[in-house]
């Protein structure tokens, strides 16, 4: 008897577990609940824009005008440490050590700090929000203040943000900061107020070598689509599966 009861309860246990697992799986596929996992995905309709960014490291001359323009365009505090966009100079010395420098985000320009004979290679890396398709920053927001717009731009709702700065910690690229005055999270909007008016984002408007472009990844005639076709591009920290949409041409493996 005891033996039979045991078998029964085991069968029931497996049944119940299977039912529960099945329900969870089925619910997770439903639209309203999938929003909990990913804020947005690539739009199903390919005629709608899905913005990405292309940066050509080989063209960047490190003038820092992008970082400067970003602050002026978006009225960001001129104090150091508050950056939506900045430039880093990587220098790999002949002894294998790596020096990364970004004096005031590159806003005042760069001066070569390592003598020529010690340099193995050196290059500039402009950095900004990667506008990830599976952005860690939007997933951790407890109040729905940060989100990916239907065009794939990660934005912050200043009125909803309560300044917990969880997203600042979550971004693996260091692209967010807490605004010193509003005490809310702040970040690159891909100059949403400019691109909706048909203008270039400020950093791209002032880039003298056209090292940075943005465009619609769905537009097969577009500039970005062509850029990705003609260059071997790489994203930052691909192992984190953030779905980054910032593509670098000529990215060296030393870049973090």
């Amino acid at each position: 008897m005891g033996d039979k009861r045991m078998k029964d309860s085991r069968r029931n246990f497996i049944k119940r577990t299977a039912a529960l697992a099945g329900t969870i799986l089925a619910t997770s596929a439903l639209k309203p609940f999938s929003a909990v996992i990913f804020a947005t995905g690539k739009p199903e309709d390919p005629s709608k824009p899905w913005y990405g960014i292309g940066i050509d490291i080989e063209k960047c001359i490190g003038c820092g005008m992008c970082a400067k323009a970003c602050k002026l365009e978006n009225d960001i505090s001129q104090e150091p440490f508050y950056f939506r966009s900045w430039v880093e100079q990587y220098t790999i010395r002949t002894d294998g050590t790596i020096k990364v420098e970004s004096p005031n985000g590159g806003i005042d320009g760069f001066t070569q700090s390592v003598p020529d004979e010690e340099i193995y290679k050196t290059f500039f890396v402009p950095k900004m929000c990667n506008h990830c398709a599976k952005s860690p920053c939007t997933q951790v927001c407890p109040v729905g203040a940060t989100y990916e717009s239907p065009e794939g731009i990660a934005l912050v709702d200043e009125k909803y943000c309560m300044g917990c700065s969880y997203c600042v910690q979550a971004c693996p690229y260091g692209c967010r900061y807490l605004h010193p005055e509003t005490k809310t999270a702040d970040k690159c909007t891909l100059c949403y107020h400019r691109i909706t008016k048909g203008l270039q984002p400020a950093c791209m408007e002032v880039c003298p070598t056209h090292a940075r472009i943005y465009g619609d990844l769905n537009d097969t005639e577009g500039e970005l689509y062509k850029f990705l076709k003609e260059h071997n591009c790489q994203i930052l920290k691909p192992h984190l599966n953030t779905g980054s949409k910032l593509f670098y041409n000529g990215l060296s493996s030393e870049v973090r």
Partner: peptide, 9 residues
């Protein structure tokens, strides 16, 4: 559109 205030855009 999702778990956010669409007007903020």
């Amino acid at each position: 559109y999702g778990h956010y205030r669409a007007d903020s855009m």
